[in-house]
Amino acid sequence: MQIITAPSIRWLLVAIVVLTAAGCALLFSGRGDRPPLETAAPVELERYLGEWYVIANIPYFAERGNVASRAVYRRRDDGRLDDLYFYRDDFGAEEESMEGVARVVEGSGNARWKVRFFWPFTFDYVILAVDTDYRHVAVGHPSREYAWIMAREPRIDDAVYQRLLDVFARNGYSPEALQKVPQFPAQVGRPGFQSPDD
């Protein structure tokens, strides 16, 4: 018998809230009038897999206020991908994690995924841009309500960061909606960074 822990209940509620909000956003945001997101296809999946630090995102319930967050993508025996999310509530807290599973959408050049953290809910993961060295990436969602800038290292050059913000702007996002995620204690409270208390 599987024991449901308090963190599991928390993330189940998170998934329901986020996916309900995403569904409403898609239903009521006039998505049919918007052009589809431009993708980075083709994406070389083997080069893309591995660890990515979350440099910035549009804060939402599941990730708002997290610090030192990162994602790890790896192949599974069944052909799908593990989507592992690691984070801390603050720099003095122990690392926590969520485990999801992703599948690449056929015909998308590996740039569109369907990700599930809690059955039966899935959400779209769209790779908008990845540099030739696979060091920096911009990931979006068709609703334009969710966005991530990630990098292989926990720091990112300001010029690279701005280029990735420009990718979001070209895709109909408000770049100012993205906020940086502290990866180091000294970043907490600095302008543009999310606070663990949020």
Rank of each mutant, 00 (worst) to 15 (best):
H136K: 07
R144S: 03
G140F: 02
T20I: 13
N57Q: 08
P196F: 14
N171A: 07
V130R: 02
D197I: 05
G32R: 10
L164N: 04
L12C: 05
V18W: 09
R47S: 15
A41R: 07
L84S: 14
R170H: 11
R75K: 14
M150H: 01
W113P: 11
A111Y: 02
E95S: 00
A129V: 01
D197A: 10
Y87P: 00
M150T: 03
T39S: 12
V67G: 00
V167F: 04
G140L: 03
R155A: 15
R116H: 07
F28D: 00
F121N: 09
F28I: 14
Y53Q: 10
A68T: 00
C24H: 00
W148K: 03
A159D: 14
G79S: 08
G107Q: 12
A71C: 14
I156H: 06
Y53A: 01
S195G: 01
A93V: 05
S174M: 04
D89N: 08
T39A: 09
G109M: 07
R152F: 07
F86V: 02
V18A: 11
A151N: 02
P185A: 08
V14N: 09
R155N: 13
S143K: 01
Y60P: 02
G23S: 11
R34W: 13
G189K: 08
R116M: 15
E99I: 05
R144I: 02
P36Q: 02
R135L: 13
T20H: 07
W52S: 05
V160C: 06
F121E: 12
T39E: 03
